[in-house]
Every structure is written in C-alpha cells, then in structure tokens.
Design a protein around this nucleic acid. Structure first.
Length: 370
RNA sequence: GUGGCUGUGGUGAAGUGGUUAACACGGCGGAUUGUGGCUCCGUUACUCGUGGGUUCGAUCCCCACCAGUCACC
C-alpha cells in the first residue's frame, strides 16, 4: 500500500463525478479538491493559518523553483517542506518538467533529461527523472510528480508521439529510483490532443504502480471543448482505484466539467494570479475590482460570500488599495479567490454526496460567464 | 516697479511655417489555467495660455494682454 492512497466513496449516478478521500501522511483529504499553488514554498501573500481558515487541504510547491533557490539540500536540512514553511496539512510537489519548458529561455531535451538555463541567473542546469525524483524526496511533500514533458499546443502527431513515449519511459525511471517512505509518486499522462496517444499513455502508466495519476498537457491554449474531449478520452483509461489530478486547471467551469468526467484533484495559479491583478472570482464570472464603476461601491466583492475579505471590506476600499499599489489589496483578493474555489470544490463534494451534482453543475453554468 | 525666461492632454515633457501633434507616466478597458506581485494588448490632445496680426496656410513668426518663474529694486 502506498503512503498516499485514494478511497472512492461514490460515483454520481448520471455523470462520472466521484466523491472520494485521499489518505496521506498529513491527513485525510476530501475530493474533488482544489489545491492552492505555493510555488516558492508559500502561497503568495497568504499565511498557513489563513489557509486553514479557508479549509485548504493539500497545497502545491514547485520543484523547479526550489531546486534553483534555495536548493533542495537546504530544504532537506530544514526538515522538509512542511517544517520549512510551517504548513501542517498535505503537500504536493510538481516535478519541474512544466517549468523547464515554460520558464527557461533555452533548453535542450534528450533521453537522459533536460538541460536548461535558470530564469534567475541564466546558469546552465540539468534535470532528469532521477534528479527530479531525488529533489522531490529532499523536499519531502506527501505527493511527488513524475518528471514529464508538457507538449505545447498545437503539436504535430509525430512530435506528440515521440514526446509521449519518452515521458512514459521517464515515468518508469522515476518509479525505479523513488524510495520515499512517507511520499508517494504520481505518474503523468500526456499525449497531446490525440485520442490514441492519450489512451496509449494512460494505459502505459496504469501498468506502472503509481499512487495516482496526473493528467498533463491540457489547458495549454486549446479550445475548451477540445480539452473536455481529450480529458474524457484520458480518464476512461485510468484505474478507478487511483486519484486523477488534472494539472493546471482551476476555473470553476473547467473544474465542473472535469469532475463530471471523473477528475478528483486540481491546482491552478489562476485564482491567486488574477487576484494580484485586481480580478475577483464570483459566481457570475469575474469582477474586475480595479474598474472605475466600483469607485463608490461599498458592497463586498460578493454579498453571498463568507470569506474574511467579504465580511470586512468593500469593493471601493479594495479598488482604492489597488490603485495605490498597496500590498494588502493582493492579500484581500487572494483570500477571496482561494476561498471561492475551495468552497466551489466543497459544494461539488456536497452535491455528489446528495446525488444532485448534475443540477448543481447546470445551475452554476447558467449563471457563469466567460 | 524694472529686466530676463517660460506658457503643448491628468503629470513630465518632444516637436515643425503645410497630410491624422512624438514619447513616458497616469487614467480607462482587456488578457492571465502544473505562478515573475511580472508582463502583454487596446484606448486616452477636433488641439498647442488669451486676443489680434503677418501668411495661401500658424502650435511654430510679430504685437498686446494674462499667468508662472528668476534676478534686481
């Protein structure tokens, strides 16, 4: 038995939505769940106590960033990520594969691994399945991800095929060197936008003994209907007994559609990133609190929201803080957006539990714009 | 009071006797999906202190006035 394992509680009778629990060394967490992103060992502007208050469960940190700074050995010396950043609930580390491609100016990909330049100082670095796994063991999160290549969109079939096959070989190498007792490894399905490659990738990885499965390479610029199509093709070939984690997705509409297709976990920078740019997530879509219409609007961001921000501050005040570039503004909207998505995931869980997920999803989509 | 200098959008400022008056900031919109509090995109002066004059034509040349500023008194 893996240190992290998924317990399926029930499946929605009409969609593929799953209610479950993820058992980890740092607690048992309920799925479907949204995982806030804490790239550099902090969810930007938010303290662990505030995360507990908004019922955050697992949070994410980035291998790529922590590998470059402060270095995984330092985190190991600190006693691991949990102790280092003082977060007591679940943690997951991304493998660094995605960042090597999205952040690095130059990189060279070979069977052995990827050579790239640090976005911090330009120094030449190397990351491979073995190194990414070792680094993640040093970081010590409950869940580590296999080192993969996120295929860009669009990509031609030959490229996608070559890359996907390599990612599968890399996945096996990660599994072979992984030894963490209190850490489990998730494999990552790729395959680009090609159904047969997705199926192949899902089947290949399912044969390996991973604790769960990431679904990568989606939400990379493709139209949403295509993403749902490819996602459906992926989840149906994954074992029902393991958790499915759709990587990088985190707008409520996409999450609802993905849950209906059997996804259990999500992470996304969207809520915290747009928060720092003055956008609040609300049931009707987005509220750009920077906008001039809110200059004298003393209502909270969302009158039905129970978060700290909405209980205490007005749109006009937050708008004012944004225009003054006050950092409190970033915190207030980050708290609200995280609360919004965490609560949205909770509502999905409750609706699956009470057999009204399809209605919940429909009602939500009816009001949601963009 | 006398002499000098200056007067261009919210701000700092380019500019030329002749089609739609640079640029930066700000403002106003938008983008943002395995995180650079970054960034990117669009938009923002029927008009160059006011009134006259010269000229085919003036933001640009001339005069007066007004305003600001410096020096002297």
């Amino acid at each position: 038995m893996h240190s992290v394992h998924y317990e399926l509680i029930k499946v929605c009778p009409t969609t593929g939505a799953r209610l479950g629990r993820l058992h980890t060394p740092h607690g048992v967490f309920e799925t479907p769940m949204f995982m806030p992103v804490g790239t550099q060992a902090t969810v930007k502007t938010i303290s662990p106590e505030e995360l507990y208050d908004m019922e955050s469960q697992i949070i994410l940190a980035n291998t790529y960033h922590l590998f470059l700074r402060p270095g995984h050995e330092l985190v190991r010396t600190a006693g691991g990520l949990h102790k280092f950043m003082n977060y007591k609930r679940g943690m997951l580390t991304d493998s660094g594969g995605f960042q090597v491609f999205s952040l690095s100016a130059m990189r060279k990909i070979e069977e052995a691994g990827v050579t790239f330049r640090s976005h911090i100082d330009g120094s030449k670095r190397f990351l491979s399945p073995e190194i990414a796994t070792e680094v993640q063991e040093a970081l010590g999160a409950d869940i580590a991800m296999a080192f993969d290549e996120c295929i860009p969109y669009p990509a031609d079939y030959e490229y996608a095929k070559t890359s996907t096959e390599r990612t599968s070989r890399w996945a096996r190498r990660c599994l072979e060197v992984h030894t963490g007792n209190n850490q489990s490894l998730f494999g990552i399905v790729q395959g680009g936008m090609y159904p047969d490659l997705r199926r192949l990738s899902a089947e290949k990885l399912s044969q390996m003994d991973f604790a769960g499965y990431g679904i990568g390479g989606l939400s990379v610029g493709e139209p949403k209907p295509l993403m749902y199509e490819v996602l459906a093709e992926t989840t149906q070939h994954l074992p029902a007994s393991k958790a499915r984690y759709l990587m990088g997705v985190g707008t409520p509409d996409c999450m609802a559609e993905a849950v209906a297709l059997g996804v259990d976990m999500f992470d996304c920078v969207f809520p915290t990133r747009v928060a720092r740019n003055g956008t609040a997530m609300v049931p009707t879509g987005r509220l750009v609190v920077r906008n001039a219409v809110y200059t004298e609007d003393f209502r909270p961001i969302d009158e039905s929201c129970t978060c700290y921000t909405c209980r205490n501050y007005s749109r006009a005040y937050i708008r004012h803080l944004f225009h003054c570039k006050e950092t409190f503004a970033l915190r207030l909207l980050s708290i609200h957006n995280l609360h919004f998505l965490l609560d949205f995931a909770k509502q999905m869980r409750l609706s699956i539990a009470s057999d009204r997920f399809p209605a919940f999803k429909n009602d939500f989509m009816l009001n949601y714009r963009i």
